[in-house]
């Protein structure tokens, strides 16, 4: 299966491990991720907070490129990119006038017929038995708190699962033999868009999430978003280290868990480049 792939601007930096692990795993599952040639930034929060037309146009350029490639589906690993592309797509498909205006701005003749899926949806589409057939390691020592954040499940018009209790990632992770805990903060916001400008707010939000993962007796958190990953990984040190009462929560991307189960190396999966130490837990499988 071939899918157009939108890496997003963090693909070589903060989201590097997400990108590489996802590519390894997709490859193993027979999903061909074909990078959009000369893609550009989706605009992210900065664009939609500044100018609606700018936000839609920046996303639309990439959607138009996908159409040009002859693909009908595009996927993104980064949740923020997914949300921006998906929102732009929904609006453009519903509003002919907007589409015309945006085409004028981008200089492309986009028809608004591209489907936007998150990489989580793409992988979750593979049937359970085929995924399980690829596994060589059991992840039974992992007690995972699956963290969806906001961007995949909200707002309603682009949600990939129930906004209060999504289970799509739970199901994928369970195939590895890992224990997926039921917990309260699956979709509570980590404050990603404020992480540079108001990081004290982010610390407060992250500490609530880390506390909830502790309460649920998880030993790690698994995300599907580079922004969430960075926030949870970095800002938890302010609570786990200063207050001492909370256990550290190593943070993984969901393809990393799948990849480790498939027998990929720690290096390939990039599980050692985190701020919160992952080695204790990873040692149990590799």
């Amino acid at each position: 299966m071939k899918v157009a792939y939108y890496p997003g601007c963090s693909y070589e930096t903060s989201g590097k491990d997400y990108e590489t692990s996802a590519k390894f795993v997709c490859n193993k599952l027979g999903i061909d991720l074909i990078e959009i040639p000369d893609w550009s930034c989706c605009g992210s929060t900065a664009a939609h907070s500044t100018d609606h037309l700018l936000a839609v146009s920046l996303a639309a350029r990439n959607l138009a490129l996908v159409e040009k490639m002859g693909f009908d589906t595009v996927t993104a690993s980064c949740s923020a990119c997914y949300q921006r592309l998906a929102l732009a797509q929904t609006e453009l498909a519903q509003d002919k006038k907007l589409l015309e205006q945006v085409n004028e701005i981008t200089g492309y003749d986009y028809k608004a017929a591209v489907k936007v899926n998150s990489i989580l949806e793409i992988i979750a589409c593979v049937d359970e038995e085929s995924i399980k057939a690829k596994f060589t390691r059991s992840m039974e020592n992992f007690r995972i708190a699956p963290y969806y954040g906001c961007l995949l499940v909200r707002p309603a018009k682009i949600k990939i699962d129930d906004p209060e209790n999504p289970t799509i990632m739970d199901r994928v992770l369970q195939t590895t033999g890992a224990r997926v805990v039921d917990w309260s903060h699956k979709t509570e916001c980590c404050g990603a868009s404020l992480s540079v400008s108001n990081n004290d707010i982010v610390t407060a939000l992250v500490s609530r999430i880390i506390k909830a993962a502790n309460v649920a007796d998880a030993n790690c958190i698994v995300t599907a978003c580079a922004l969430c990953h960075l926030n949870l990984d970095y800002y938890q040190s302010f609570v786990t280290q200063t207050k001492g009462a909370l256990k550290e929560m190593p943070v993984f991307y969901f393809p990393q868990i799948l990849g480790l189960a498939m027998g990929f190396s720690k290096k390939d999966m990039g599980v050692e480049y985190n701020i919160t130490d992952t080695s204790e837990l990873v040692k149990k499988v590799v």
């Binding site: 909200r154 916001c189 868009s193 404020l194 707010i201």
Partner: peptide
């Protein structure tokens, strides 16, 4: 208005 993180919890 700018501190809103657009998490959309309110909207849903």
């Amino acid at each position: 208005i700018r501190l809103c993180a657009y998490c959309s919890t309110c909207s849903v």
